[in-house]
């Protein structure tokens, strides 16, 4: 009997994930956003194959060239191909976003579950720390951490992650508090399941929909924050391309060479918009009231 239940559980989870995906595809906005995100992802992943030029190499005979058949998005003020830089910059942005989401989900989710499941003084301590972090706007906190650590992609990931963890902790905590009073949790406790087992087997699957929605939003926020940090000079270090750095440097030539900000700006807008739309669609799909 037990073995039957254990075998059936993963199948149910797979079916549920598939059902969510199918529902997402049926949603017109969700589907469009998924397609856009897939294209952006493909461009970023296959950047070395798609890009015609090395994003770091300066062609000093082609300074500030407007978009053409050779340079689709034009060239920058030291002759680098903007199309290649946008693709590689997107790669950096998506990497930062993905890493931030994964780390935040794991750490923020774990802390939130502990806080919500145990309650009492554990909850009080965790929530006071979270509140202390929440006092500062997330961009200011990220800026402070990134400036302290120095400009690098790794440090940007750390800075954005630390600023986004409180958001996850709060949401997961409240969801855990709702779940922990259910009968099946009480039953698990009665049959002697440890808190860790309860959290992993009952907490995580039940929290996953909420975390997915939040994760998609945090993904967008992380991309925007990475761009903002790079714009302010504490993000991705030069000469590596970053959408934020490109925007920052492009502002100097806004009248002379508008393509320097149009294309990185478009890519940033499209990526973040797609992620936000997916988040919205996921929320609609997972909302029991919409079923």
């Amino acid at each position: 009997m037990t073995s039957l239940i254990q075998e059936a559980a993963p199948a149910r989870r797979t079916n549920r994930t598939l059902a969510i995906f199918k529902a997402l595809v049926r949603d017109p906005i969700g589907c469009t956003a998924l397609v856009i995100l897939a294209i952006v992802l493909a461009l970023a992943i296959f950047a070395p194959l798609v890009a015609q030029f090395d994003p770091l190499v300066q062609n000093r005979r082609a300074i500030l060239q407007p978009p053409s058949l050779t340079h689709w998005f034009g060239t920058d003020d030291i002759g680098r191909d903007v199309f290649s830089r946008v693709l590689y910059g997107t790669q950096v942005s998506l990497l930062v976003g993905l890493m931030v989401v994964i780390i935040t989900m794991v750490i923020g989710g774990l802390i939130g579950m502990i806080s919500g499941y145990f309650g009492g003084w554990v909850d009080v301590i965790i929530q006071r720390i979270v509140e202390a972090l929440d006092v500062l706007p997330s961009l200011v906190l990220s800026l402070f951490i990134a400036a302290m650590l120095g400009p690098s992609v790794r440090n940007v990931i750390i800075a954005v992650t630390l600023a986004q963890i409180p958001r996850f902790v709060r949401v997961v905590r409240s969801e855990t508090m709702k779940i922990r009073n259910n009968d099946f949790i009480a039953a698990s406790r009665v049959i002697g399941a440890s808190p860790l087992r309860i959290m992993l087997t009952h907490g995580v699957p039940n929290l996953m929909p909420t975390m997915l929605v939040l994760g998609s939003l945090v993904f967008g926020i992380a991309i925007m924050t990475e761009a903002a940090l790079s714009f302010l000079g504490v993000g991705t270090p030069p000469p590596n391309p970053s959408l934020g750095t490109m925007l920052s440097q492009g502002t100097r030539f806004i009248g002379q060479a508008p393509w320097l900000i149009v294309f990185p700006g478009l890519m940033l807008t499209i990526s973040v918009l797609a992620l936000n739309l997916i988040g919205d669609a996921l929320r609609d799909v997972l909302d029991p009231r919409n079923r």
């Binding site: 030291i78 000079g233 030069p238 000469p239």
Partner: peptide, 22 residues
């Protein structure tokens, strides 16, 4: 910083790799 990037490419032309640290 643009000056530094310019220097970086000039040095790359003679096989010297400069890893920029801001």
């Amino acid at each position: 910083v643009r000056e530094a990037e310019w220097i970086q490419q000039d040095l790359a032309e003679i096989g010297v790799t400069a890893e920029i640290k801001m």
